[in-house]
Amino acid sequence: MKRKTVLTAMLFIAASVTLPGQGADSFPSINEGELSSGAITGVRQYSDESLYGYIDGGAELYMEYGFDTLSVTDIDIANGAIKLEIYKMSDAAAAFGIFSVLRFKCIAGVEFTKYLCRSDYQIQFCKGPYYVSVVNSNATVDEKSISEEIALTVASKIDAPDITFDNFFSGGVADDAMQSAKLVRGRLGLFSGAYGLYETLEECSGYSALIINLNGTILISILFDSMESLNLFADKEKLDLSLMAGGEKQITASGNTAIMTGEFDMLLQMK
């Protein structure tokens, strides 16, 4: 049986909501009993392209990263409402990627998980393959407090180690650099969070790029998923891959410094 759920069939009011697959490979969720106040008024789930049914063209960004399933829980509270969205992405890097381009002007708070961002109306975090967003409607103290409670509960139910980025930068990346890092896999990610790199990567496909700012120097580690993707980039940037395979550093057509770091991997230092 497909792990998909008819959207409307899941619209119900319940004291306890269990999503498909709960168990060893459970999809995190919130139960009404876990809320200090409020009532769950509906749960919907979207898989693959049915995400168009939820956010129409907005679905493209998630699909670009690799989307699996979204669970949306509507919660009514006194004089307000909260919406919990749990996106299961194709992998942890995809979840971090979405988080990285959608976080914005984060404000401080309790750090119950590593990649977390708060604003008055929203708490966002990613953990394992999940990107989670808790949105309130009025930014009242009560709404923010219940949102924290929900986010904390959901995070505690995700049994996944923090993502590491050793495959992008051997030895990893310092935590402070990751606070502003962006991970993109296509044009929409670039538009959303890394616009300055648009010209460099706009024609590329089949890649994951982690962009970090290291003491004012912008570095991009690009992992291409095939020789074809790498060749496309190399052709556009006028790079001689045979020379680079021997360890030669080259300057791209865009003026950036490039070096091969693996069979299909490249590191750029932006001009």
């Binding site: 051997s170 030895g171 360890g247 070096i259 770091t261 590191l267």
Partner: peptide, 10 residues
């Protein structure tokens, strides 16, 4: 693997 890895490049 290339002689210059990511760590060196950094």
């Amino acid at each position: 693997m290339n002689s210059v890895n990511r760590r060196n490049f950094l």
